[in-house]
Write a protein that binds this DNA or RNA. Structure first.
Length: 228
DNA sequence: GCGACAG
DNA sequence: ATCTTGTCGC
C-alpha cells in the first residue's frame, strides 16, 4: 500500500490524495524551523540517499538532520516523480528528533499536470506545511521576471496560476515556487526569499543536497572497504 | 503526429 | 538525477 505497482495505480493514488491538499494556508509567517529535503542518486541509478536538514529559520544554522539510503521506489516518469523518492524521504523524516514547521521540497507542488507534485504529496502525508521549489519548469507558461532579486511573474497553466517564477538573486536564473500544502503562494514566496540570502537555491535545499551526496559517498567507501 | 517532460 | 572541460569572476 506504500508504493504503487504501475503507472495506473500511481495516477489513482494522486487522484485520491489530491483533495486532501490544503490550499488555504496561509502557513507560518515566522516558522522557527524549516526543513530541506533532497535525494542523490548513484551513477548506476540503483541506489539513492535521501536527506533532510532542519534549519533554524532565523540564523539558517542546521539544528537537526537525517539520511536514509535505499533504492528508487518507482521508475522516473514526469508527473509521477514523487513515487520515486517518497519512501526514502519519509524514512529520513522519521529519523528527525524535531518536527519542522515547514518543508521545502526539491521539486514542484501545485505546478504539476494534476496539481499534485512532490511537495503536495509530502505535505499531505506528513500534514506539515510544504512548498515546492523547482529549478526547471514541469508545466506552465510565464514571462521572465525583472532581473532583481525578489522580482516574480505568475506561472500559469491553462487559466490558473499554479506558482511563481521567482528571481532569488540579481541577474540569476529564476526558480519555480509553488504551494505544496497548508501554505499561501505569497507566504511561500516570502519563505523562499528568506532562505536565499546568498545563493539561487534555498539554504535548506543546499544543506540537504550536500548531506545526501556525502551519504552516497560514504556508502561507496564502505562498500569498497568491505570488498577488500 | 510531434515535442516537452520536476529529479 | 549524473557525466563532463573550460571559463568567467569575486
Amino acid at each position: 500500500m506504500g508504493t504503487p505497482g504501475s503507472v495506473a495505480e500511481a495516477l489513482a493514488v494522486q487522484d485520491r490524495l489530491r483533495p486532501l491538499v490544503d490550499l488555504v494556508g496561509p502557513g507560518p509567517a515566522a516558522p522557527a524551523t524549516v526543513a530541506g529535503l533532497d535525494v542523490a542518486y548513484a551513477e548506476s541509478g540503483d541506489r539513492l540517499a535521501a536527506a533532510v536538514t532542519v534549519l533554524d529559520a532565523r540564523t539558517l544554522a542546521v539544528v537537526d538532520s537525517a539520511v536514509s539510503v535505499g533504492r528508487p521506489a518507482f521508475d522516473y516518469v514526469p508527473g509521477l516523480f514523487a513515487f520515486r523518492e517518497l519512501p526514502a524521504l519519509l524514512a529520513a523524516l522519521d529519523r528527525l528528533t524535531v518536527r519542522p514547521d515547514l518543508l521545502v521540497c526539491d521539486g514542484h507542488g501545485l505546478a504539476h499536470p494534476r496539481r499534485f507534485g512532490l511537495a503536495c504529496h509530502l505535505g499531505v502525508v506528513t500534514d506539515l506545511p510544504a512548498i515546492g521549489v523547482g529549478k526547471t519548469p514541469l508545466v506552465g507558461r510565464w514571462v521572465p521576471p525583472a532581473g532583481r532579486r525578489g522580482a516574480w511573474e505568475p506561472l500559469r497553466d491553462g487559466d490558473e496560476v499554479v506558482g511563481r517564477v521567482l528571481r532569488t538573486r540579481d541577474g540569476v536564473k529564476p526558480v519555480f515556487v509553488s504551494v505544496g500544502h497548508r501554505m499561501s503562494l505569497d507566504n511561500a514566496t516570502a519563505r523562499v526569499l528568506a532562505l536565499t540570502p546568498r545563493y539561487r537555491l534555498p539554504e535548506t535545499t543546499r544543506t540537504a543536497d550536500r548531506l545526501c551526496r556525502d551519504a552516497l559517498q560514504e556508502g561507496n567507501a564502505a562498500h569498497i572497504r568491505s570488498a577488500l
